[in-house]
Nucleic acid binder design. Structure first.
Length: 668
DNA sequence: GCACAACACTTTTTT
DNA sequence: AGTGTTGTGC
């Protein structure tokens, strides 16, 4: 019998003279190469503002248009918002098929896979995800249980301990190494901490609790130990794209390697110069090592900048030039014109806030730039406190991104704890939180009640008929009956009734209850979009709204024109017409925690690079000369400013001019 | 033995 | 603003 081979063309070889999009006209040469290359490992080194998102969007469209099933594409990004936005744009370019592309963060992807296939490594499909605060609480409970409290010697607090543990996981160091390297003050406690870490892991596993790190670790384990699952996923996701590759850690890189085992169709996109998450284990060397991990890698560089005017790029180039590891790259643009970035020393923080607020007002009202096209960026969330006051004073509406998040506020966590036990009645952390809110209930009583209710068939019903004659009996019963009543209701209704239940507790517990009340209203609005409580809770831990608490309530309609205040970390991937970077002072930026560590300093520098490359037209760099935060002393301008050629900056000096109502400064 | 109010202290960046 | 510590009162 004659064998006759059928030659199936690969998707990138399918002749299609009638693509609905004119790719050649829309993209430059390098971008086009990215878009047209579907097969094999590809590393895209994408400089800031080089149209990376646009390129990825077109690539998704082209793949789908070439007949690749959207479900066979996996797009891993840093935030889920980023992937949704890309897929939305791809859908707008082509059609709604693009929305069926699988996308999300490593953590959300892992969550999905582990719920489905986690059985193989001992995970129940109903496991609970711990956010940072929850994981810290677990450590707190263990500390209580075993009484490590050392007299005389200082033992680290739960937050510090958790930071150590998570660093160990993400950098793949032993506890010893982490302590020696980053927490040498606690060198004495290595033994206890190692023991505690083992208990922590054991506790999580026994209670089916997964923290952020576990999501990655368990996914890696699943893929390594279960060939069949790996094969299945590899067959399913034929094309993998990973964005922000410079901010992945070793575990994530290994996950990518394992997922692509059978086909090698991986595109990693990133920029070493923008790596800003080393503190949580990210390793920009992942980019440099990608070609070794995937032999035969095609490297494509996107170097043309479409975002910023040349005078801004001159400054960003000066910034990154200071890096000791040579990321030597120079961004260039074909755009002409633009003005030099402006350097503004101010007397103190007050004056810095006044300057920023006044200048923003001018750009808004006189030059007609919408507030939403301007941003103020800072190293740490608290750097903006004074500015927030000033903006409020002048009625300039803004959103703040980063810092104490909505989801982390105590009163929000209180309500969420009540919801969580509805889904998982074995969630001790949440029980504890709820019980401690009741008058007369402390850690011991809470532990005692929890121990009893865990063995009950119906813990809610048991609580509602709580037998013990104690002063907190009525409160416990009220809690039980509330939970019992709301159990079958839809999420929004549950939250509404919980708010009623919680109102007296809120008043009792927090002096500023009036401020907190609107947040609960906001929580209620969010839950209205969900029909499943489980989904809602998972979403809130994996992809919480990243706006800070204070703003959450006031901002309801999306279209409102709002100034953006953001930490630089949260500004990744975004751009604005005008950008203000404040507090460019030693100890602030670079942060005081990085001053004695070369690697950390280097990361601060990259952070400044990320900040300055966000600006399209105008860039303002400010620093107060006088810093009254930590005792009164004269601060020094950031060392990073020294590396920027003065001819690339315009310097303004402020003077105050009295006007009728109150003193405001003007420019010289 | 336990809960709680008053106090002092420290506070980066995030999935 | 939250955490841990310490002293007081039930």
């Amino acid at each position: 019998m004659k064998k006759y081979a059928l030659k199936i063309p690969r998707a990138d070889q399918v002749r299609s003279d009638h693509f609905s999009l004119d790719y050649d006209a829309e993209l430059n040469e390098a971008q086009l190469q990215v878009v047209k290359t579907f097969y094999g490992p590809i590393l895209v080194v994408a400089g800031a503002g080089s149209g990376k998102t646009r390129t990825l969007t077109y690539r998704v469209a082209r793949m789908v248009e070439s007949g690749i099933a959207p479900e066979a594409i996996l797009l891993l990004t840093f935030t889920r918002k980023a992937s949704q936005e890309m897929l939305r744009r791809a859908a707008a370019l082509l059609d709604t098929r693009c929305e069926h592309v699988a996308g999300g963060t490593f953590h959300s992807f892992s969550n999905m896979i582990l719920r489905r296939y986690g059985r193989a490594i001992g995970l129940d499909s109903t496991f609970t995800i711990l956010d940072q605060g929850d994981a810290e609480d677990v450590i707190g409970i263990l500390l209580d249980q075993i009484g490590f409290k050392k007299q005389g010697r200082s033992f680290p607090k739960k937050g510090t301990i958790h930071a150590m543990f998570t660093k160990a996981v993400n950098k793949e160091f032993s506890i010893d190494t982490v302590i020696a390297k980053y927490y040498s003050t606690y060198f004495q406690e290595i033994e206890e901490l190692t023991k505690l870490h083992a208990l922590f892991c054991q506790y999580k596993f026994e209670h089916q609790l997964l923290d952020y790190d576990d999501l990655l670790v368990y996914l890696q384990r699943l893929l390594e130990q279960h060939q069949d699952v790996r094969q299945h996923l590899s067959d399913l996701y034929q094309f993998i794209m990973v964005d922000e590759y410079q901010d992945t850690n070793k575990i994530q890189a290994r996950i990518v390697r394992l997922l692509a085992a059978t086909h090698d169709n991986v595109m990693a996109v990133g920029d070493e110069a923008q790596s800003i998450y080393a503190f949580r284990g990210a390793n920009y060397r992942n980019i440099l090592e990608f070609p070794e991990q995937f032999p035969g890698t095609t490297i494509i560089k996107l170097e043309e900048n479409f975002r910023s005017v040349q005078p801004i790029l001159n400054v960003t180039n000066d910034v990154i030039k200071q890096a000791r590891e040579s990321f030597q790259k120079r961004l260039y643009t074909r755009q002409i014109g633009g003005t030099r970035p402006i350097l503004v020393p101010t007397l103190n923080e007050r004056q810095q806030s006044q300057f920023v607020a006044q200048r923003i007002l001018e750009l808004w009202q006189e030059e007609g730039i919408p507030l939403a096209k301007m941003a103020v960026l800072f190293r740490s969330s608290f750097h903006a406190f004074d500015l927030e006051l000033e903006l409020n004073r002048r009625n300039i509406p803004f959103v703040k991104v980063g810092g104490v998040k909505f989801i982390e506020a105590a009163h929000i966590k209180d309500i969420l704890a009540h919801l969580r036990v509805l889904v998982n009645p074995l969630d001790e952390i949440s029980w504890r939180r709820m019980l401690l809110l009741l008058d007369g209930v402390g850690p011991k009583t809470a532990a005692m009640i929890i121990q009893q209710l865990l063995v009950e068939q119906n813990p809610f019903a048991w609580l509602s008929e709580y037998p013990k004659k104690t002063k907190y009996r009525l409160d416990v019963q009220r809690l039980g009956s509330t939970l019992l009543t709301i159990l079958p209701l839809p999420p929004a209704e549950q939250v509404r009734m919980l708010r009623e239940y919680y109102a007296p507790i809120l008043k009792n517990h927090y002096d500023d209850f009036a401020k907190r009340e609107p947040d609960l209203e906001q929580l209620n609005i969010i839950t209205e979009q969900f029909t499943s409580l489980e989904k809602f809770l998972t979403e809130m831990t994996l992809e919480p709204p990243n706006r800070s608490v204070d703003n959450m309530a006031q901002v309801e309609d999306q279209d409102e024109d709002l100034l953006v205040l953001s930490t630089i970390h949260s500004a990744k991937g975004l751009e604005w017409q005008s950008v203000f970077v404040i507090w460019l002072a030693e100890g602030r930026f670079p942060s005081m925690y990085s001053l004695d560590d070369d690697e950390a300093l280097e990361e601060e520098l990259r952070l400044l690079y990320v900040a300055t490359t966000r600006a399209m037209q105008h860039l303002y760099l400010t620093y107060p000369v006088y810093d009254n935060k930590w005792g009164n002393y004269f601060g020094r301008p950031s060392r990073f400013l020294e590396g920027i050629s003065r001819k690339n900056l315009e310097q303004w000096s402020l003077f105050e001019e009295d006007i009728e109502e109150d003193g405001e400064e003007e420019f010289a």
